[in-house]
Nucleic acid binder design. Structure first.
Lengths: 335, 335
DNA sequence: TTGAAAGCGCTAACAC
DNA sequence: GTGTTAGCGCTTTCAA
């Protein structure tokens, strides 16, 4: 590895001269600057990032803690974070908690030793269920800023990025009601999560408002890791009068569509379906699934920007903000 | 941030004593070790990783360069890498090239400045198409080891992890032939890639061997970013005599199944389908898609192990190895 | 215009 | 058993 010292030796100048020259310091003569830069280029010199980090006590690296990268939503958020981070001159270290509290704790601890300048985090399922947030609150005292997204925790004081889940589900449900659907089911495999609860409540409220009662038998909650297809098939066989479905998660909308079709439902004539998804998921079924788009990439971009803003703010203890990213309802084929 | 120095001041001993005590050096008395450790625990002392990295010139961080995290295969490989890396005491910095050569070059360059100890890399589409590999070969000279997986490049000399694509496709095709299928189509949205080419060739060879000629009109290659569903629908309308499909990628199998069903095909009676997928994808359709499983997580685990082995090998220039991870054909519902 | 020296936090060889 | 010192590669103050 080529270092300042080696360049300095070759040029018969001091290390500090080389350093200054490479940084275009006004202290150094043009001539020297050129000589130094030429040699540096010749050896393809890159300043050692670790040394810079130590010196500046700033790593320009962000820790991103995510529950599950196989969930397209999180994968997309990560894409947004990574891309925007790069343009801002940051790298990201990714930790996947696999929805466990222990890995979440460990990841925060392991990276809180100078490895990163801050965190972007979506809480794991286990964290939300167990209501154990000390490891996150504790970060406040280490002056490592945190931005939470999607899986945010009310009790933790930090910048946050969310979508308005409640309103999205309300709008989707009202959509189906407007189509004249009377037996609208709600299907979710994220009933443990805050977002899941909020989405369910929005569904219930909308149904209640229109039909004055909620039929609990039309609510299907599927635990993670259980085979959704079998559950959904049984659910439809038991409730053949269903004429609308609102899905609260990323996968069950597609499965509902295909299962119902297999059972003889015409879509959208007999059954309207809407789920959380994106274009690629929508494209997997015939007809294409109508969906609520969460603008996942935007969420990621907003998160990293909030974080970097805070890193750059002169410690002046800005108020924490919560940014709400707009959602969109897209594609009418299954409505 | 609490440092050795601060601990040393409080304890009225030297920094090196504290350092040695925390590392259980035999030079230090039990009594001191206990005193030091207690104070360290009290302050929740964590050694600064950046300082350690600088001192040891080893970061215990791996750069992972991936074309597209929204592709489930790569997401799964990443899960494998991340988990295994953590057990081995490594962090990973993830870069997503979005299938571009420029981002791939930039990522390698940016991380080759001491940020990481080595790389795990799957080449981008653009890299493979343009046959521009200098940025990868160049790493050899910087003693940063590389392990390539899946999208490997023959001309680059390094450790590699792959599956036997040729054999997998052969086996899948022969499977359909054995079911009596006579008009077997091949569908791929990865025709640009080496793996895509290899899979197509295996299909052709198998068909040729049995039926002595290949009907090129039964081969559908879809460029990335084009809407697969429309293409596949048109393809089936133009070729209603198709009775078998081998899909070379992660998504078209599901789309084929749903499109064909929508056009009136009974599956698997009228049409047998097999694709590259995993359980979750398979589960999205009715009947469930039969699939070739690439054991993506295993690929990731193998890659990080190869890399760490090389990092630990005493520079003795071990031969480069290529590990072939076994694939499996799973689920018979759509066959 | 250039160089010497200190220091970021840590480890390790070498004194004492 | 403990302390001193040097050094990892870099930036930056201060002196020349």
């Amino acid at each position: 590895m080529i270092t300042l010292k080696k360049l300095a030796e070759q040029l018969n100048v001091s290390v500090s001269t080389v350093s200054k020259a490479l940084n275009d310091s006004s202290e150094i003569s043009q001539e020297t600057i050129i000589r130094v830069k030429e040699l540096a280029k010749h050896y393809n010199y890159q300043p050692n990032r670790i040394a810079q980090s130590l010196q500046k006590s700033s790593t320009r690296t962000i820790g991103v803690i995510i529950p599950n990268i196989l969930n397209r939503f999180f994968a997309k958020v990560l894409v947004g974070i990574e891309k925007e981070a790069n343009t801002l001159g940051y790298n990201i270290i990714t930790c996947i908690t696999n929805e466990t509290l222990s890995k979440e704790k460990e990841s925060l601890k392991l990276l809180s030793n100078g490895s990163v300048d801050g965190f972007i985090l979506a809480a794991s399922e286990e964290t939300q269920v167990s209501k154990n947030f000390d490891h996150i609150s504790l970060l406040q005292s280490s002056d490592l800023p945190v931005v939470m997204f999607d899986r945010v925790i009310d009790n933790v004081n930090c910048d946050k990025v969310v979508i308005d889940d409640f309103s999205a589900l309300q709008k989707a449900t009202v959509h189906l009601i407007a189509k004249g659907r009377k037996n609208i089911a709600f299907i979710s495999n994220i009933d443990d999560l805050n977002v899941g609860k909020s989405r369910k409540q929005a569904y219930k409220d909308s149904i209640l408002k229109k039909y004055h009662k909620v039929d609990e038998s039309l609510i299907l909650t599927i635990p993670r890791k259980v085979n959704s297809q079998d559950r959904i098939k049984a659910f439809f066989k038991a409730n053949p009068h269903i004429d609308g479905v609102v899905s609260a998660d990323n996968t069950s909308g597609t499965i509902v569509l295909n299962v119902a079709k297999d059972l003889g439902f015409k879509i959208p004539e007999d059954l309207s379906i809407i789920g959380f998804a994106d274009e690629a998921i929508s494209n997997l079924s015939v007809p294409r699934l109508s969906y609520i788009s969460q603008n996942a990439k935007q969420i990621g971009i907003a998160a990293i920007n909030l974080l970097v803003d805070r890193l750059n703010s002169e410690e002046e203890k800005k108020e924490f903000t919560t940014r709400v990213i707009p959602y969109k309802i897209k594609n009418q084929e299954s409505l």
